[in-house]
Amino acid sequence: MPYDAWKDNEYIESLVKELKDNGTNVIVGSLDKLINWGRSNSIWPLTFATSCCGIEFVSLGAARYDMARFGWEVARSSPRQADFIMVAGTIVHRMAPVLRRLYDQLAEPKYVIACGACAVSGGPFKKSYHVVMGCDQIVPVDVYLPGCPPRPEAMIYSIMQLSRKIKVERFFGGVNRREKMQKEFLESHPIEGVNDVK
C-alpha cells in the first residue's frame, strides 16, 4: 500500500518530520527501513476483548471487512506472540491489573490501541464507581480510537495508523521516541509484582 495513501493524520505527520530532521546514515537507515517494513506489515493482535467492541473486532475478522487482507488475522491467544493489544471494551478496576499484566507479557515491540469510548475515557460509564476512566491510566496507548463501538472501518483505520507509526520508528541509533515514552510511562505507573518481574 503506498505510503502517501494514508497521509492524513497531522499528529503522525509532525512525528515523522521530527524523526526525519535528525538525519541518519545510509546503511543503518535502509536497514531500519527493511525492519520497519516487516514490522509495520505484520502486526498480530492479541485476542483480547471485554465487551461490545470485541464483537465488532470479530466482524472485522469476518468476510466482510476481512482484516486478513492486511495480514492482521493471525490473532494470537498468547500475549508472548502478539504485537499489539486492541483494548476492545471497558476496563474496570478488577480487570486493570490483568490488562497491565497482559501488556507486560507482550514481547517487544508492543503497541496498544485504545478501542472505543470506554477504553479511551470511560465513555458512557463515566459516572461508574468501578470503571477505569481510560486505559491510558494503566498502559501506554499508541492509538486512540473513539466510537461506541467503533465501526469496523474505523478499526481498520486505527490499525493502519498504528502501522504508519511503526513505519517511522528507529531500530538502530538515535533516540527511539516510542521506547522513551514507554519507559517514562512505566516508571510513573509502577505495579508491584508485575513490573519487578521484568
Binding site: F125, K127, S128, H130
Partner: peptide, 14 residues
Amino acid sequence: GYIHRGVEKICEKD
C-alpha cells in the same frame, strides 16, 4: 466482575 460496570448504580443517577 471483570467487566462489572455498576450499571444499576449509574441508572440511579440518570
